[in-house]
């Protein structure tokens, strides 16, 4: 029996085999969608760049060389150099680490938060539901960027505070989804069965409700990634996110603003990196949605 047959076995012997089989089917379905493949490759590229930054970048991201200031793109510095003579390509490469960190931390903070709040609201219903969803709705009805700006203003500029502020604005959408999903199977028979054998509320929520919400959550988080990257870059651009000399893409564009009319490459190059990575997450998210959640696609 080949590995593939084992994965696609219709009567899996263990839970692991069933899960792996499901994952394999999803993966092959995803790989049939050209845009999703493109997105997947872009994200892989981002991961590889972040992981191997010291080997990919020809120069240090912070090392200055004032004799090589504002050089246009050439074979040696193919994205040019900035106002302190730093190689822009090297800074963009190292910047991928910051972007990846922001995206990962925001997802790790906001997705579980939204998931738990939504599941608790949907599971218990009544007053708990009304209060939690009222709070969620208020956050949802406010513009995200403005809210994040106000939070950073109060917390003070810096990359950690930017991450916290973005996470605070990101969770409500996840809470809505988790609640909607929870409502559909709150009264399902297998949940009642767990209740009958004496499963506590927290056991039911964590072991039986939350796992069922994860697939739609993964789709939504992936689709939101582009927005998160743009907000983080925006905060960096305004000087409220990552601080110099960190090679954050938004902050780099902000530095290049002064030179945009004569040395266009300083501001434009990091922008291409932002667009590429955001597009990658959009493509992948679109593909994931078609595979995991066909009813939501609206593309029929």
């Amino acid at each position: 029996m080949s590995t593939r047959d084992w994965l696609l076995d219709d009567s899996p012997a263990t839970l692991t085999q069933a899960n792996l089989g499901r994952a394999w089917r999803m993966f092959t379905a995803l790989m049939r969608n050209p845009l999703a493949v493109a997105g997947f490759l872009i994200i892989l590229l981002l991961l590889a760049t972040a992981l191997f930054a010291p080997w990919i970048a020809p120069e240090s991201p912070v090392g200055q060389n004032l004799q090589a200031r504002l050089l246009p793109p050439t074979a040696e510095h193919w994205m040019g150099t900035d106002e302190l003579g730093r190689d822009i390509f090297s800074r963009v490469v190292y910047g991928s680490r910051i972007t990846l960190m922001i995206v990962a931390l925001v997802a790790v903070i906001s997705a579980p938060l939204g998931l738990i709040i939504g599941a608790v609201a949907g599971y218990f219903g009544g007053w708990v539901d009304r209060i939690l969803m009222g709070l969620t709705d208020v956050f949802l009805s406010l513009p995200k960027l403005i809210l994040a700006l106000a939070f950073v203003a109060a917390l003070g500029p810096g990359i950690e505070n930017a991450i916290i502020a973005i996470a605070i604005t990101a969770w409500p959408a996840y809470a809505r989804i988790a609640r909607a999903e929870t409502l559909t199977f709150r009264n399902a028979e297998y949940i009642q069965a767990v209740r009958l054998v004496g499963g506590s509320h927290s056991r039911i929520i964590f072991r039986h409700v939350l796992p069922l919400c994860t697939s739609s959550m993964i789709v939504r988080v992936t689709l939101d990634m582009a927005g998160i990257i743009l907000t983080a870059a925006g905060l960096g651009f305004l000087g409220l996110g990552a601080q110099p000399p960190l090679p954050e893409w938004g902050a780099m564009i902000s530095r290049g603003r002064t030179f945009i009319l004569d040395q266009w490459w300083v501001a434009t190059m990091p922008g291409f990196a932002i667009i590429l990575v955001s597009l990658g997450f959009c493509f992948l998210g679109d593909g994931l949605r078609d595979v995991l959640d066909p009813k939501q696609g609206g593309e029929k």
């Binding site: 743009l230 870059a233 564009i253 945009i260 009319l261 922008g271 932002i274 667009i275 959009c282």
Partner: peptide
């Protein structure tokens, strides 16, 4: 449409200034 979700507004503004104004 996906570009609309992926391009930073401030970057497009700067590029627009560089191209159409300067």
């Amino acid at each position: 449409a996906l570009l609309g979700y992926s391009v930073p507004a401030f970057w497009l503004g700067l590029v627009g200034l560089a191209v159409f104004y300067a």
